[in-house]
Design a binder for these strands. Structure first.
Length: 521
RNA sequence: GGCGCUAUGGUGUAGUUGGUUAACACGCCGCCCUCUCAAGGCGGAGACCGCGGGUUCGAGCCCCGCUAGCGCUACCA
């Protein structure tokens, strides 16, 4: 995966604040682990980090936490890059791959051992069944509770350094654990959740480096965040409790502790954690791109999940507006439910997201929408070069006409197929309702087709004139012919004002479709 | 088991230093518009603000307790 961003200065950049105080500029990062596709919750974390950075004139960095070699995949890394690009979230400086820093992490741990802030634990590694870790943890805790816990009882905690060094040198395997104080408590002020306290007695001497030499998550994030000069850590609430452990590591390393802001989780309709495994593709960001969402719309929707602008009722906001309005204070504490139904295809994702996408489709400046429709038609094999040449005006006009009732970009090639191709499908219900209910249409439709074919100066107005006149002569209501025409020309029972449709489809195609539809009556 | 976080209509949210008929958006229902469906306009149903106690003349907003959901708790990230 090549990174195209140009490297920027150094991360210890300072800016001169208007108040003339020297203020360290904000540096935030989005640090996803490349396992599975980019989760919408992660995408939202990226968005908030980006908004915050851009709001305060800070720096937004990207770090791929690929330390879990087993689960990390290139494909997943790619989906992260694609997802960010799709959302329009550009990052500054070069991407950091955490796995490349493993030696530094180990070195940091070694240093802590030397300084007596961490120790080697020679206890043989306990095998753990990954499947029921949670259960094991609970059981172990229950056990410990009944016998009284002392997290500092590890026999190797106070092993003299010389002996520790000797055993290590002899090749005996060991894990490195942080020495957590016997007394005291950890404290920090979360920008979202407020003051957080945790007694040291509740924190065990956490493992920094596994006995196979693999640095663990808590150590890696802290080391990398220090090295990248991160000033504000904005991430999911699932990291809230562990923050205390990380602060302990910052302190042991003698580094400044950043500010923290934890984001409320995004839950599934049943209030369970939204997970790729249980909920499938709805949680994957790329799904939205693939199913015809407009980036700006989904981004807008995501921004409103767990955050709301102060004193603002308008919900449709551009990236610039979001950036202007964004503040950590506006982030909520309660989790947000992402609403969707796997039973109803029309509600495959959140109602509001769908509505917002439709809103964008119908209100976006046409010039911005056109390229997206072009891409969609292209992938559906419906794009024609002439739409960018002589047919440009026709194309723009047609898109503008049909976009009014579409929900996703997919609709342009789906429901909208008849406008761009002759091989479209007829909706059974539409045929039954508009064609089959009146036998006379078998003669009327071809006859109307003849009239239409002969119209001079063909357009919506003349098509209407012709159709209404023909309806009068034939003694039928205009509505009958109008609705029948809609199905004849588009295969559907719903759509734009019919005479506009005539104009856009053109006289010859309209005429032949009217004639052909007779066989469906 | 322990610790932590959260709790306003189905969903997303607003609710200023406690005093409102509890607001907005999505969704739902109806009417108008109309060649259909949307959009738009108008109107409606839907919340005793998780439950129980307080404090107060008055509590969604303050205090206590409870419950539920979720998170963390690992030589996972």
């Amino acid at each position: 995966m090549k990174d195209e961003r140009k490297p920027v200065a150094s991360y210890s950049s300072f800016i001169l604040h208007p108040s003339s105080f020297l203020v360290m500029s904000v540096r935030v990062r989005f640090a996803p682990s490349p396992t599975g596709y980019l989760h919408i919750g992660a995408a939202r974390t990226a968005l908030f980090n980006w908004l915050y950075a851009r709001k305060v004139g800070g720096t937004f960095l990207l770090r791929i936490e690929d330390t879990d070699l087993q689960r990390s995949t290139d494909e997943s890394t790619r989906s992260i890059f694609e997802g960010l690009a799709w959302l329009g979230l550009d990052y500054d400086e070069e991407v950091v791959f955490q796995s490349a820093n493993a030696d530094k992490h180990r070195a940091a741990a070694a240093r802590l051992v030397e300084e007596g802030k961490a120790y080697r634990d020679f206890t043989p590694k306990a095998e753990r069944a990954d499947a029921n870790v949670k259960q094991e943890i609970a059981e172990r805790a229950r056990h410990a509770a009944s016998e009284g816990v002392d997290h500092r009882a590890n026999p190797f905690r106070d092993l003299p350094l010389e002996e520790s060094n000797r055993r290590a040198a002899s090749g005996e395997p060991f894990a490195v654990r942080l020495k957590v104080g016997r007394e005291g408590r950890s404290r920090f002020e979360d920008a979202v959740y407020g003051e957080q306290l945790r007694d040291y007695s509740e924190i065990e001497d956490l493992v920094l480096v596994r006995s196979d030499g693999h640095p663990l998550y808590n150590l890696s994030v802290v080391c990398d965040d220090i090295e990248m000069g991160i000033t504000d850590v904005v991430r999911g609430q699932d990291h809230l409790t562990n923050t205390h452990k990380q602060i302990l590591i910052y302190e042991a390393l003698g580094a400044a502790v950043p500010r923290f802001a934890h984001l409320p989780l995004i839950l599934a309709p049943n209030k369970a954690k939204l997970s790729k495994r249980k909920h499938g593709e709805v949680v994957s960001l790329t799904t939205y791109r693939d199913r015809g969402f407009i980036p700006a719309a989904f981004r807008n929707f995501l921004a409103l999940l767990g955050w709301s602008p102060e004193g603002e009722e308008k919900e449709i906001m551009s990236l610039a507006e979001l950036t202007r309005k964004f503040s950590l204070e506006g982030i909520h504490r309660s989790p947000a439910v992402f609403n969707f139904s796997d039973a109803d295809p029309r509600r495959w994702t959140d109602d509001k997201a769908l509505w917002m996408n439709a809103e964008y489709i119908r209100t976006l400046p046409l010039e911005e929408l056109l390229p997206m429709v072009r891409a969609e038609l292209g992938s559906a094999g419906l794009w024609r070069a002439e739409y960018a040449g002589d047919g440009r005006d026709w194309f723009a006009k047609t898109v503008d006409l049909i976009r009014q009732r579409f929900f996703t970009l997919k609709d342009f090639s789906g429901q909208g197929r008849a406008y761009f191709a002759d091989d479209f499908e007829f909706d059974d219900a539409a045929v039954a309702k508009n064609l089959k209910k009146e036998p006379r249409l078998k003669e009327l439709l071809p006859a109307l087709g003849e009239r239409v074919q002969r119209i001079e100066n063909f357009n919506a107005a003349t098509a209407e004139e012709t159709l209404r006149a023909f309806a009068d002569e034939s003694g039928v209501k205009a509505g009958l012919l109008i609705n029948a025409s809609r199905t004849a020309l588009t295969g559907q029972s719903v759509g734009p004002s019919m005479f506009e449709v005539f104009e856009v489809i053109g006289e010859s195609r309209s005429a032949s479709r009217l004639r052909d539809a007779a066989r469906l009556v």
